[in-house]
Design a protein around this nucleic acid. Structure first.
Lengths: 349, 349
DNA sequence: CGTCCCTTGTGAAACGTTTTATTACCCTAT
DNA sequence: ATAGGGTAATAAAACGTTTCACAAGGGACG
């Protein structure tokens, strides 16, 4: 019971039991160099006496901490939360502790975090790199012998493997779906073009249009939006443009929700009045009305994969920098039907 | 650039500069005991040479790590994500690093995490205790001199202060609002009765009914639901009960969304056909249709407050265990109008 | 009986900081 | 010239592990 005293250390146990600290250390870690009987004796006493292992001391000696640093853009984004979930499960199972940071696409913040992690001697870093991250920043870490795994956003020349979905393909598919529904004027909203996901999803959209004989340059392309609020803003812009689109392909589900709610406020019924698609298939978007047509990109799977890749690197096994992309799957639901009789207003309430 | 060599240490810098390691250590930490000139010289060289501070060594020496452990039920829950957000902002500003864990209301998982944190010599712990946590488990940590701050869920007898919203008052208010709208049969859905928030929100509902001369025992009370999916299940149960309610007060927004989507599937229009209220005022719920009537309980504020409380404890200042509850504020929107002409079906599509 | 190997156990040197007590030095006032 | 006082710098002892090299004992085998 909470004796106000100093914490117990190996030496204390050793003295009490009449053995050396070396023996105690070895025993606690199940080294075969110590006899079964002694091991039991040590463990039992340590347990009873409430011994608490000091990882700082161990880290100092061994130069490794059993900690993994995770930096993502924003854990509040349900999509990242899901990725994180996959990550965490796999890592805690292996006894790793997670240090976390939301860098919010702020380079300085990200750098500060990385520095701190290095000071803590983390065993590895899992990063969704902030937009504008220089490949060299990552490369430097890797060349110090600290494994880095990127998630969601790739960074050419960083020397680190990246686990992510096939953004190009996903957006190509869903745009193609819109085209097949009969849409001819299809906007794209959102996505930071400075990130690989923003870039790739935009390319998919362009290519799908081109392949269908539609000219992407005549379509509407509104970059940057990432959140629900920004999606709303974009929707206003779209509706008031000279030639409003009949469909809008959004960078992610959040933006799509924003677009739909703005449309509603403008008297346009999302779905019949304006086809809207999302990306990510966040939890719950299939249950709304209209149920969101979107792309499931296997967030949990991406998290798990990244964790596995990290663990493999920690074991010293070399990993290929060329990780196969996780394949997305289309979720056709209700929010993107064929074009209606043009933008038909309906009275709310 | 990445010399494959050993990491630089204080001693190396000292040798190069012809001073002692003590001087270097002091200089880097801006001690007034070292002359301005030397300090600059040291810092400049350390910077140029790419020195990386080793926190394990420092932790070992000083018995503190600058790390704070945070254990919550589930970071994927947007509400907790918001609390976490408040926490993080306040903590990183003070140079703290966050160790995180989702305990998922699994006691064993929570305990493992706590143990690991203690081994890492975290400076403090911020915990939303798993349901079923024994006050003693927390008390033991506190009595070791490690500050603990609880968030969202209180735990009497734990010896740790708790920052949380006034759940009783919030649910009382919103139930009262439903009553004022003319509802007489008001169900409550969700909330683990083993947690303070579940218990308090349920009490608020009961008391509001009693104060209005309604008998809580005749109303419908479905505990446990916490997620959208569980909310859907509950909705089916409600609608098919002998005397279906005209309003349902949900434990949180997630459950409310579930109830509304299920209602819709059953041909009932959420709002006019069935009044639904949420709790938490998660981002975006005001933009949906119908806009959710709910209670904003200041998640970010709770997170910030908890962080402040922790920081104060870290400075050694004693804090009162009696923290004033964060006052919730009602968000009256569209989802809880007066009762319609009883459950009126409407045709979807 | 001596030699060798195997099993257990140990002493002591790291690991890279922080901090306390002490020294070295220079300046000023007597 | 000497004492006193302030400023800068330092030596060395922690902090609690891990691990390397070695020692002690005990069979087995020649």
């Amino acid at each position: 019971m909470g004796n106000g005293n100093r914490r117990l250390k190996l030496e204390d146990i050793a003295r009490t039991l009449g053995v050396s600290t070396a023996t105690v250390s070895l025993a606690l870690r199940d080294s075969p160099a110590v006899a079964e009987k002694t091991r039991l004796r040590v463990k039992e006493y340590a347990d009873k006496a409430g011994y608490i292992y000091d990882r700082s001391a161990a880290s100092l000696r061994t130069s490794q901490s059993n900690m993994i640093g995770v930096a993502v853009h924003d854990i509040m984004n349900p999509y990242f939360a899901e990725v994180f979930h996959g990550l965490e499960e796999a890592l805690v199972e292996k006894g790793k502790t997670i240090l976390i940071c939301n860098h919010k696409d702020d380079l300085q913040r990200q750098q500060r975090f990385i520095d701190t992690m290095l000071q803590h001697r983390v065993d590895g870093l899992i990063i969704c790199p902030s937009i504008g991250t220089k490949p060299n920043n990552i490369k430097r870490i890797v060349s110090q012998g600290i494994p880095v795994t990127l998630v969601c956003r790739d960074l050419a020349g960083s020397g680190a493997p990246c686990v992510r979905g096939d953004d190009y393909n996903g957006s190509y598919q869903i745009t193609k779906h819109l085209i097949e529904q009969g849409h001819k004027r299809i906007a794209m909203v959102g996505g930071r073009r400075g990130s690989s996901s923003g870039k790739d999803r935009n390319s998919g959209w362009r290519q799908a249009l081109l392949d269908a004989g539609l000219n992407p340059d005549e379509q509407i392309d509104i970059p940057e939006a990432m959140t629900q609020k920004e999606g709303q803003g974009a929707a206003f812009e779209l509706v008031h443009s000279k030639q409003p689109p009949t469909a809008v392909m959004c960078f992610n589900d959040l933006v799509a929700l924003g677009v739909m709610s703005a449309a509603r406020r403008l008297g346009i019924q999302p779905g019949p009045g304006l086809a809207v698609t999302g990306y990510d298939d966040m939890e719950g978007v299939g249950n709304r009305s209209p149920a969101l047509t979107t792309v499931s990109n296997g967030a949990t799977e991406i998290g798990e994969l990244a964790a596995q890749l990290m663990l493999r690197q920690l074991k010293g096994k070399p990993v290929s920098l060329d990780v196969p992309l996780v394949q997305p799957v289309l979720r056709i639901r209700e929010s993107a039907p064929p074009p209606g009789k043009t933008l038909k207003a309906f009275s709310p309430a």
